[in-house]
Every structure is written in structure tokens, then in C-alpha cells.
């Protein structure tokens, strides 16, 4: 049997909202260590990797490793029925072909239970190599979301140039062109508002802005986003999930022909 309980069920709902535009169905791997998921988008230029460690849940029980094929589209619809302060329990009984989502209101006066049928999905598990990136930009996730949304108005691609002093996002298209430059913060009251850059080598990489906007659906999970970049290497865009894990998105840079 598998059972995991999260006092703040809304965190799980945000995780699903962060994934479901990029991948509509995916296999969840459940083990004693926690829940992991890895999936590629249908065009095979982006990959997402999710980790939710078992110690981040209020209670967690996983008697044997399980692979659960789940429609994220359906799960998202079910989770929309959850109250914002509800506790969420996810359960899979032995020999069951369904996942059970139980939602309990904070005052314990309302209890809802939904079952979703599990799917048989083919999944190809790719290894993600440890990479020493040339540059890691940390910035407020709301700011990154706004910039990606604005850049999409100008063109299909966004070029991210990073130097030790700052990071510049630029786009151009039929309507015109534009760029936004953020300097590294020197003095901020709140760490979550800071822009910081760890740099070994300056980088300039171009990405499809449509994908960056899909990644930004996970921005409500975390105040900050980490953008790790090296020339000719997929971008890693990371949002932390509280203290319990992370969502990492990988995106192929565009190559000039």
C-alpha cells in the first residue's frame, strides 16, 4: 500500500498545475524515499524532473516501489475541487488500479474522496548528468514569469545573456524588439527579492519562449527561480517545492542554422 498525507494539500495542487501544460500524463515513481517523476514533452525538446521527498509529508508509507501512470489533466480537475486549506491524502491500495485522493477541511467538518483510474504508460527513463554550469542566475520567480510573458509579445524566442554584472533577456520579431536587463542586487532587505549571479563564464543562449512560459506555471511554488546555463547545454530552470523537493525543467537551446 502507498499512502502520503500533506497538511497543505495546495502545495500538491501547485505541483500539478506546474507540470500539466508541459506533460498531460506521466508515470509517478513511488518508493520509501519519496515520489519522483520524469517526463518529456511531446516534441522532445523539454524534460521535467520532480522530486518530493518522503520526509516532507506529514505521514508517508510505501510498502513496495510502485509506478503509477496518471493523467495530470484529470488530476488537475480533481484537485480544483479541493479547498485551499484542505489536507490531502494520496492512497493506492494493494492490487488496485486507481489512486484515491482524500481531502479534509481544516475544521474536519468536510471530507471528500475521489478516485482516478491509473493508466498503463510507456515511459523511457533518461539519465540526467550532473553538470557544472557556467552560470546560475537566481531571481524572483514572479519577475521571471513577467519577463517571459512580455518577451512572448515580441517574438518566439528569447535570448538570455548573462555576465557577472547582470542578466539580459531579449526578443525580436515582426512587431519589433526589446530587452530587459537586471543588475545583480547589491543590497536587498528580503532575500526573495534578490537577483544574484554565480558566474564562471559569460553565456548567451536562445530559447523558445513558449516553453519558458510553460515552466513559469510552476512559479507559484517558490519565490525564487534558479536558471542554470552553459553554452550548448540544456537550460535547467528550477523551482523549489518548500523543503521537500524541487521541479526542474530542462530545455534545449535553439541553434542557429
Amino acid at each position: 500500500m502507498f499512502e502520503a498525507r500533506l497538511a497543505q494539500g495546495s502545495i500538491f495542487a501547485k505541483v500539478i498545475e506546474g507540470l500539466r501544460e508541459l506533460v498531460t500524463e506521466a508515470t509517478w515513481e513511488c518508493s520509501g524515499n519519496g515520489i519522483t517523476l520524469q517526463a518529456m514533452d511531446s516534441s522532445h525538446v523539454a524534460l521535467v524532473s520532480l522530486v518530493l521527498r518522503s520526509d516532507g509529508f506529514e505521514t508517508y508509507r510505501c510498502d513496495r516501489n510502485m509506478s503509477l501512470g496518471i493523467s495530470l489533466t484529470s488530476m488537475s480537475k480533481v484537485l480544483k475541487m479541493m479547498g485551499k486549506d484542505d489536507t490531502l491524502t494520496i492512497r493506492v491500495n494493494d492490487d488496485s488500479d486507481a489512486i484515491v485522493l482524500s481531502m479534509e477541511s481544516q475544521n474536519q467538518e468536510e471530507f471528500a474522496e475521489y478516485e482516478l483510474r491509473l493508466m498503463d504508460l510507456d515511459s523511457e527513463h533518461l539519465g540526467i548528468p550532473d553538470t557544472d554550469y557556467s552560470c546560475v542566475v537566481k531571481m524572483p520567480s514572479t519577475k521571471f514569469s513577467r519577463i517571459c510573458r512580455d518577451m512572448a509579445i515580441l517574438g518566439d524566442s528569447v535570448t538570455i545573456c548573462s555576465t557577472k554584472d547582470g542578466v539580459k533577456f531579449g526578443a525580436k520579431g515582426d512587431v519589433g524588439q526589446g530587452s530587459i536587463r537586471l543588475n545583480q542586487s547589491t543590497n536587498v532587505d528580503k532575500e526573495e527579492d534578490a537577483v544574484s549571479i554565480e558566474l564562471r563564464e559569460a553565456v548567451a543562449l536562445t530559447f523558445a519562449v513558449r516553453y519558458l512560459n510553460m515552466f513559469c506555471k510552476a512559479a507559484p511554488l517558490s519565490n525564487q527561480v534558479n536558471l542554470s546555463m552553459s553554452e550548448d547545454t540544456p537550460l535547467m530552470c528550477e523551482f523549489k517545492v518548500g523543503d521537500m523537493g524541487h521541479i526542474r525543467f530542462y530545455l534545449a537551446p535553439k541553434i542557429e542554422d
Binding site: 525538446v45 527513463h125 533518461l126 539519465g127 548528468p129 550548448d232 547545454t233 534545449a252 537551446p253 541553434i255
Partner: peptide, 14 residues
């Protein structure tokens, strides 16, 4: 292509 280079960055563990 971008896709081939992207996939070659990752590997399929055996």
C-alpha cells in the same frame, strides 16, 4: 537539430 543535441545530453541508463 536542437532536439538531437538535447537528447544526446541525457542518456538512457541500462
Amino acid at each position: 537539430s536542437s532536439r538531437q543535441r538535447f537528447l544526446s545530453f541525457f542518456f538512457i541508463p541500462h
